[in-house]
Design a protein around this nucleic acid. Structure first.
Lengths: 163, 163
DNA sequence: ACACCTCCTGTTATGAGATAACATAACCGG
DNA sequence: CCGGTTATGTTATCTCATAACAGGAGGTGT
């Protein structure tokens, strides 16, 4: 992850300014619609995720939490992440121990990522889980969440050479 | 996991006696065929995985490592697990921080699991990754490994009530 | 047999990731 | 304004994983 080559981080731009405010506002709306509360620490963690252009570790968020450099206490951030995941605003990438904001639509408990082992980018994509769900049903499972993590090298990092 | 109800653990029987020896022998063969060495600690960790009927945590393996109750040192087991994963003898289940022996065929860097949040069973199945690989290729990725983890409730734990 | 390289193991220590437990405060319905 | 519920603050600790370095085992060429 970034140890192997020096391509630029991430592919998602990372929101700022009005785009960021708009996204936060939309989250606020969705919470209001379901009796959920986007409280200050939850909003702050979502903001940090949206601003970033790569998967964020929990302790990165803890360190960046305070507006003036004071870190948060771990449970503050872990609770916020739990909330954001529950509502579909964020996903945990298990194989990285890291978190990303949902880039698809939110609300879903399905997530699929293409993760570059070189630059660390994690692209969320809309997967086709038809076959998996059929297999699960056949086995008698009631599936609640599906996560798919495909690792390899992204287009930029596969290219001959660059910067 | 197992906190929610009291269904019996796992669905894989856990090998013993001659079945266990046969599986270990087969692993030995496959290693010999590729210039790899199934050394004592590696063999021991594989044995522990094969004997068990549910995903094993690294520190469970560390505790069970010694024949007479003496634990191993963490790196001993983590190195063995790394080897076993590399050769396809074992898989790590990211969302559980736990390990299982490969139940499919070995050698593959693809794995898919149906994980029961109730009894902790983790059934490996052979997934159809056609759509995912197409998406990855379209995005320019060179995929090396794919992991899919579907969580929910297994047939037994979905049933009305039992034990 | 010897020197050499490579891979693997043993050991100590520490780093990273996550949660338990309990006290306090904010929100909301009656 | 009271009481339930939900969220937060805080301390401490637990689980998971790896860095770093020394030593041993197994091959290869001479």
């Amino acid at each position: 992850m970034g140890a192997e080559c020096h391509h630029p981080d991430g592919v998602h731009p990372g929101l700022k300014g009005s785009a960021l405010n708009h996204a936060l506002g939309a989250a606020e709306q969705r919470c209001a619609a379901t009796q959920e509360r986007l409280t200050a620490p939850r909003r702050r963690v979502l903001e940090l995720l949206l601003e970033s252009n790569s998967p964020q570790k929990a302790y990165d968020l803890i360190a960046a939490f305070g507006a003036h450099g004071e870190p948060a206490k771990p449970p503050t951030v872990y609770r916020a992440l739990e909330f954001l995941e529950r509502l579909g605003f964020a996903h945990r990438i298990e194989s990285l121990n890291a978190y990303v904001p949902c880039r698809i639509d939110g609300q879903s408990h399905r997530a699929a990522f293409l993760i570059c082992d070189c630059c660390g980018a994690a692209d969320e994509f809309e997967p086709d889980f038809t076959a998996q769900l059929a297999a699960a049903t056949k086995a008698g499972y009631q599936v609640s969440t599906i996560t798919l993590e495909a690792r390899g090298r992204c287009a930029a990092c596969s290219a001959p050479a660059s910067s």
